[in-house]
Design a protein around this nucleic acid. Structure first.
Length: 411
DNA sequence: TATGCCGGGTG
DNA sequence: CACCCGGCATA
């Protein structure tokens, strides 16, 4: 009986493969291995009720997709395999939770699982996420941009991303909606840190597709250079860290984030590293302070960051940047220069037309400008003269007072 | 015309 | 090096 069921299972798998319902790379021998593992794990009882690894003979191939469960396999019985199977095989398959859907064989005996079985288990998990259903379209790699303009690409959400160290982060198998809500509900700094960690310290993920184009977003705010892998993250970073230190400007700067990041494409490989000076400007680094209150510098960390048009503290503080040597790393100066066109949130007059222009093209415009003659073109960024006026010349940065290039509102 | 800033001068 | 300014380019 078992042999018959197993052969049926194999034939069903092969049938599915022919029909393109499962990976075409699944060879017949792999199907056999798969069935072996399946039946050794006790799945031969009733395919309709055993949950995980439902044979292909079950009604719909999509039935096995959203199942996340753990099989406690009884002691193995007849049909001894070449190598004794582990007493307990825990195969966790779910298409909803990318971090755990491939965690398999958590039992201590997993070391004894031979490679074939491991491969079979991998095939199983591959089955669990073969043709992406509509409900999980947010994870589709082919269309990373969602309608809302958010992007969650390369943030461990790739269906082929295998991870074993992400488990504790999500105790249960969340639904996609819950996952999305969870992400948006996480505090900004936590999300940022995690993303930054992922960018900076990500292990060379061997299971990511090689030569795949990765998209990251770099903050163009001077002296920041934060690189995040998600559009939402970089926007949130810019909004919370650079733009919205005073709540009153939130409306204005809501759409300005577009000007402060640039999209960088990179092939899988050594990631572009942020400078070690990254410990800057966290969202909590500067409490909201009322603008136009030229109070003395209060936080030494502020001098690392770019001036915020919303905070006079920053502006005064950053004057030291003129004394200090210029930053060794050029922070895409031009892009930020043209980006800062709308930076001062005191006047948002120019936003209307340009707000939809992505900074990528802005950067291209800057490159064109850079090919222009030596004298620096006059940017539309606010300089000390504009900000403080002639009558408050004492508030200007030293460079402006000397008729040099403004060092407070860098280009 | 106002502004930004390069180039050069001075102490 | 800090400070200052003439003069030019640009908006």
């Amino acid at each position: 009986m078992r042999g018959k069921s197993q052969s049926q299972f194999v034939s069903s798998l092969m049938k599915m493969r022919r029909r393109g319902l499962i990976d075409s790379c699944l060879s017949q021998s792999q199907c056999c291995i798969l069935s072996q593992v399946y039946f050794q794990c006790g799945g031969a009882g009733d395919p309709q009720t055993d949950g995980v690894a439902q044979p292909a003979s079950s009604a719909s191939p999509s039935c096995s997709r959203s199942i996340s469960s753990c099989i406690d396999v009884p002691r193995r019985s007849a049909t001894p395999p070449p190598t004794p199977p582990p007493p307990v095989c825990c195969l966790l398959i779910t298409s909803n939770e990318p971090h755990t859907h491939t965690a398999l064989c958590s039992c201590p005996a997993q070391q004894e699982v031979d490679m074939d079985e491991l491969m079979a288990a991998m095939v199983l998990s591959s089955l669990s996420c073969s043709p992406p259903p509509q409900s999980s379209a947010h994870r589709a790699t082919a269309a990373p941009w969602t309608d809302s303009g958010t992007v969650e690409l390369s943030d461990s959400s790739s269906s082929s991303y295998w991870s074993v160290d992400r488990g504790p982060r999500s105790p249960g198998p969340p639904s996609p909606a819950a996952e999305a809500n969870g992400r948006s509900a996480t505090p900004p700094d936590e999300g940022l840190d995690m993303e930054l960690d992922q960018v900076l310290f990500e292990e060379p993920a061997p299971r990511k597709r090689r030569n795949s184009l990765k998209v990251a977003y770099r903050c163009l705010w001077p002296s920041c250079e934060k690189v995040l892998t998600s559009l939402v993250g970089i926007k949130r970073h810019i909004r919370t860290t650079h733009l919205c230190h005073g709540g009153e400007h939130e409306r204005c700067s809501r759409s300005e984030e577009d000007f402060y990041y640039s999209e960088i494409n990179q092939w899988d490989g050594p990631l572009q590293q942020s400078p070690p000076s990254a410990p800057q400007c966290g969202p909590t680094s500067s409490p909201p302070s009322p603008p136009s209150s030229p109070s003395p510098p209060s936080c030494s960390t502020l001098s690392r960051s770019a001036p915020s048009p919303c905070s006079s503290i920053w502006q005064v503080q950053s004057e030291h940047s003129y004394q200090a040597p210029p930053p060794s790393h050029v922070v895409s100066p031009g892009a930020s220069a043209s980006c800062r066109v709308t930076a001062p949130s005191t006047t948002c007059s120019r936003q209307g037309a340009a707000v939809r222009v992505r900074s990528v093209s802005v950067g291209e415009q800057w490159l064109q400008h850079q090919s222009a003659p030596c004298r620096r073109i006059r940017s539309e960024a606010k300089k000390c003269r504009k900000v403080y006026g002639i009558e408050h010349r004492e508030l200007w940065c030293t460079a402006c007072r000397w008729k040099k290039a403004c060092q407070r509102f860098l280009d």
